[in-house]
Design a protein around this nucleic acid. Structure first.
Lengths: 229, 229
DNA sequence: AAAATAGTGTCTATAAGACATTATGTC
DNA sequence: GACATAATGTCTTATAGACACTATTTT
């Protein structure tokens, strides 16, 4: 039980920040957007998740859109969902900062050239390579990856990482990139098609030097619950 | 996309609060702890969830323990898990307040007489009767109930609402109180016992004017994942 | 023996998971 | 026709859900 005495509750202000774990899938691998953090003496050119402080007249979602634009040059529409709020006292060595962390997803194919680019300031890195991040961002990223794994298993959020039209092989590859396990092709197709969330299109994926595959789209643009995958 | 210009990010302070939806099960019904909110002119003696502002040197969990003791006279150990952070600009009519909401569970049988009592200031009310709460607490309670329903279906959190020793009938009644649906006795027992998370005890529930029932306890005090119920 | 709950089993339908071959397009 | 991926089906085992009666204790 906490027994702290606080004299005047009206002076209890806290600095409120938001951080985003923004994912995409590129070449069948899961990538996360990281920026360069340069805040001597604690962080000198180390990678970190994009984030920053909330303005008094912003919701967390609005702040994220602003911060992603400012710090990560991202302006494409995103799928955003709240992840967790980190309240440890010493998570920022500069002082008390509470962070409302978000999970964001974007399809690689929708990005502009600028958004795809890597620079010193901001880059896409494989999730497996995103280590030793500033602040408590290793922990935030870890929570985000776990949440993403869990969410794709009982919702259609995966749709937010894919282009509008995709083949079943591409869909399966996206699951495998996130879950980091191989799935059986026959069982995957059988199960996914039975869920009745996909529309087959009147086209096929062309331009491949082999047999073209049927294209599908999600029937519903909204993320919905599905049977456990 | 947000396009707001903010002159100096170091003055972006926000008031940070925490609110708790504290549940218990009493007489086979789900109850929530509410306090009296009297903050004229906006809220005059209306019910609300216990909560308050974070001190600069507290985590959200510590603040909740302090606030529950101060405002709701609750000192028993609780199961606490973070629910959601509410960041709407106008959720508090007195100004910008961001609330980190928590879900808390406590077994009725563990409570002291003082903790069980209802007064003008603080009381246990049936969840179905907890309406028209102050601030956005209707929304917080709604999210909390949905989360609780979801969590009992794939974890053993229900253990945090039960006394250490309980019968299968009592366990089923707890599920029914939360899910608000009748469960089949035979299927429930079969399924729960197969999960292998319960220990049968060498005792029975005595004092009933009918056939005594076998007592069980959870093998593990920790909340763990189970098959979907 | 009456009352009240405790405790149990079977059947059917559906889902999960293991597993290999044929089909169809490009070059 | 060589190559590379697309597409498909069966079998086994496990789980979900519907459903009703007997057992045991108290009074």
């Amino acid at each position: 039980m906490a027994k702290k005495q606080v004299s005047n509750e009206h002076i209890k202000f806290a600095v409120l920040a938001t951080d985003v774990a923004l994912f995409t899938i590129k070449e069948d691998e899961l990538y996360v957007r990281v920026i360069n953090v340069n805040r001597p003496p604690h962080f000198v050119n180390v990678p970190g998740l994009p984030g920053g402080l909330l303005a008094p007249d912003e919701t967390a979602e609005e702040a994220i859109e602003r911060l992603l634009e400012d710090k990560a040059l991202m302006t494409s529409p995103l799928h955003l969902e709240q992840l967790y709020t980190f309240t440890k006292i010493d998570r920022d060595p500069r002082g008390r900062v509470v962070a409302v962390a978000y999970l964001a997803l974007v399809p690689w194919d929708n990005l502009s050239e600028k958004e795809k680019t890597n620079s010193n300031e901001v880059k896409w890195v494989r999730v497996a390579d995103a280590k030793k991040l500033a602040y408590d961002h290793d922990e935030i990223l870890d929570v985000a990856v776990k949440r993403l794994r869990s969410r794709i298993s009982y919702t259609t959020v995966i749709s937010r990482l894919l282009p509008r039209e995709f083949t079943l092989t591409e869909l399966k590859a996206a699951y495998e990139a996130i879950l980091q396990t191989a799935l059986d092709k026959r069982n995957f197709r059988k199960k996914f098609l039975k869920m009745d969330v996909l529309n087959p299109l009147e086209k096929e994926r062309s331009g491949t030097p082999w047999r073209p595959a049927q294209l599908y789209e999600f029937k519903d643009r909204k993320v919905k619950e599905i049977e456990v995958l």
